[in-house]
Write a protein that binds this DNA or RNA. Structure first.
Length: 478
RNA sequence: CGAGGUGUAGCGCAGUUGGCUAGCGCGCCUGCUUUGGGAGCAGGAUGUCGGGGGUUCAAGUCCCUUCACCUCGACCA
């Protein structure tokens, strides 16, 4: 029991204090450390390795859809940021400024990019002349800075890593198709790599991106019932093109403005992983992005043959899996707890008893299930188990989300649900921003999205009672 | 940005009305013994008491200021 007590001490229970649980996990699983600057986190090797795996896999999906990576500067001259009115109004309150070069004041101050639309637009204006130059399908993997008042690791940090795709097209139809295509890429990525089910939908006018015609989102539900905007894709129409003069000559030799999109997914996705799959033992990582997919823990490693066999197994798995053999002199129980805290999907225990039987003991992180595996064709059975874990995580998350998704057709029910039942509430909305604002004032819930997959809850706006056709998902959000 | 809370060794904490060389547990280092759920014994190392300024014979302790972290709001693509 003493061992158990030590573990409980290590991480605050989710039910007791979810916020503290989250903080404990990000620090104790060694994902991040705090830096000297407020809200700026240090991504430690284990945390960064998760990000690298996200990058690697998502980038492959971008490449498969014809996108190219570029690198823009981190500075935006003030004049450039101000070219699109809505955009600058949206971002000005949270940009950081560089005012000096060495000891000399700059003639024009430079903002540290909060997002790079203006840089891409400026560049596009230079390089796009003909319809033959289109489409431009660019992406970059960088960090951006937004001077947020309240910060939390991964969820809202002052500086954060992300990718931002910026595309320019000859027609609005093509740009809209790109916007929705990339939203699909995000949704598929969340499902297939992070084992997180998301809801695709459109943001309301109030919630859309500064400067966009329309914003689309994938929304996920965290373990505490709160919503996390997990990635967004924006359709810009030709608004930025007109502000920045991005024109091309079409097939009929007439001058046209391009139609643009942008879309992004950030290190916030790691927050989503933590708060979707984690439990009281710590992190639970989906196998496809886990830095360590399999950890081999030798038992009684000093006994003849144990370590040799463990090394052989590691060598066998290494070509197809991210595998670690922990041959440190820590106690096995210590290692079990440690790798559970770090969310390693599968643990293989190998002791003298196993060697006699040409087997090992496989323990799943998600269910705790122990299974005896033959050392013959081990890579195959391990990979099958990792796939099972992925499917189970996805299914568990889906059930968890659906069981906390409610419907409300009248305002009293709505308010009661938001106040007392953490989760999503589906309710009809008339389309008036006033109702959205009132709901936020009354309940602190916001419209998460107008889901593509509509269900008919009632005929009337849940807030004002006017006829309503759109079903909106509401919830408290990070 | 508003309200509240917290900063003492890597982590968790104690430190009395201001008073001696700032402590405890875990961890860490060395050695031996151990190894199927966070090992045991012996020895050892580790501190700008978050930073700066002030009061005082004397400050971890009191005052001012500043930075960071946490909670709840406001803000938030």
């Amino acid at each position: 029991m003493a061992e158990k007590d030590k573990r409980v001490e290590a991480i605050t229970a989710m039910d007791k204090d979810f916020a503290q649980w989250y903080t404990d996990v990000v620090l104790k699983a060694e994902l991040i450390d705090h830096s000297a600057v407020k809200g700026c986190m240090i991504l430690r090797p284990y945390g960064f390795a998760i990000w690298e795996n996200i990058q690697k896999n998502l980038d492959a999906l971008f490449k498969a859809t014809g996108h190219e990576n570029v690198a823009m500067p981190m500075f935006i001259p003030e004049g450039l940021l101000q070219k699109e009115k809505d955009h600058v109004e949206g971002f000005a309150p949270e940009v950081a400024w560089v005012t000096h070069g060495g000891s000399e004041p700059l003639a024009e101050r430079l903002c540290i990019r909060p997002t790079s639309e203006t840089l891409f637009c400026d560049h596009y204006a230079h390089i796009i002349q003909s319809h033959r130059d289109l489409p431009k399908l660019y992406n970059q993997w960088v960090s951006v800075v937004r001077w947020e008042k309240t910060t939390r690791p991964f969820l809202r940090s002052t500086e954060f890593y992300w990718q931002e795709g910026h595309t320019a097209h000859a027609s609005k139809e093509e740009a809209m198709a790109e916007t929705l295509r990339m939203l699909d890429v995000y949704a598929d990525f969340y499902r297939d790599y992070l084992a997180i089910p998301v809801i695709k939908g459109q943001k309301t006018e109030k919630e859309k991106f500064a400067g966009a015609v329309s914003t689309y989102t994938v929304e996920a539900m965290m373990h505490d019932g709160k919503a996390l905007q997990s990635a967004t894709s924006h359709y810009f129409g030709d608004g930025f093109a007109k502000a920045f003069g991005i024109q091309f000559t079409d097939r009929n030799n007439t001058l046209q403005y391009v139609h643009q999109t942008s879309w992004g997914l950030s290190t916030r996705s790691i927050g989503a992983i933590i708060m979707t799959h984690g439990d009281d033992e710590g992190l639970v990582l989906p196998p496809r992005i886990a830095p360590i997919q399999v950890v081999i823990v030798p038992i009684a490693a000093h006994k003849p043959g144990v370590l040799d066999r463990a090394h052989a197994v590691q060598a066998e798995l290494k070509p197809s899996l991210r595998v670690r053999l922990d041959e440190s002199d820590k106690m096995p129980g210590w290692k079990f707890a440690e790798y559970e805290m770090k969310g390693v999907p599968l643990r293989l225990e190998m002791g003298p008893r196993d060697l006699e039987n040409n087997q090992c003991v496989a323990v799943r992180r998600d269910t705790g299930e122990k299974r005896i595996l033959s050392l013959d064709n081990l890579a195959t059975s391990v990979m099958a188990m990792l796939d099972e874990i992925h499917e189970n995580l996805l299914e568990k998350a889906r059930i968890s989300r659906d069981s906390r998704t409610y419907e409300a057709s009248d305002y009293e029910t709505f308010k009661d649900l938001i106040a007392n039942q953490p989760g999503f509430v589906k309710a009809m909305w008339c389309g008036d921003e006033a109702c959205e604002k009132k709901i936020k004032e009354d309940t602190t819930a916001t419209s998460r999205c107008i889901p593509f997959e509509q269900t008919h809850v009632s005929d009337h706006c849940v807030c004002c009672g006017q006829p309503a056709e759109k079903m909106v998902i509401w919830g408290k959000a990070y």
